[in-house]
Amino acid sequence: MNIRLFIALGLIAGPVWAAEDTPEELRAACFEMSAMMGQLAPCAGEAAQVCLEAKTGSANKGASAAVMAECFAPEAEWWDQKATAEYERVLADFQKMNAADQSEAVKAFHAAWLTYRDAKCDVAIAGFGLGAGSNLPVIICRMNESAEHAVYLSVRGK
């Protein structure tokens, strides 16, 4: 076998083998495991770590804030959508049962949560200074808060 081809394949296969699961699969597994445990497992952000390793060779070294934001933004987005989907599922269930009190309660709760999440994540960026270069703290804050809310709804919404 051509040694160069071998190395090239090895390089390509390396991260894929290390990651094994796609980011989508990692996040879904995290959600399911958390729902089973009844609380958010410490796995939110795992797919972002794999993404960082693929980009820099190490999750903890040499990644600029911009590169980190590139990896964490899709994960924050995924959990945000998961939280919305869980909310819609819970609300639809209550509506199907004609449970008006619960429907109104979960609507008010979800709206207040959204306001609270954004206010809390604003605290994460306050004091950093304009032009600090990245809103990475906000992205990570939103990822964590959304993940917690999605898992909460899945556990308490049954």
């Binding site: 008010a108 709760f109 206010a119 604003d122 605290v123 306050a126 004091g127 200074g129």
Partner: peptide, 21 residues
């Protein structure tokens, strides 16, 4: 830099509504 104190105040106010709901 954006101020910290107003952000903290807004967060705590939002938290009270979040807690109650």
């Amino acid at each position: 830099a954006p101020e910290l104190a107003p952000a903290l105040k807004a967060m705590q106010r939002a938290w009270i509504a979040y807690r109650d709901t």
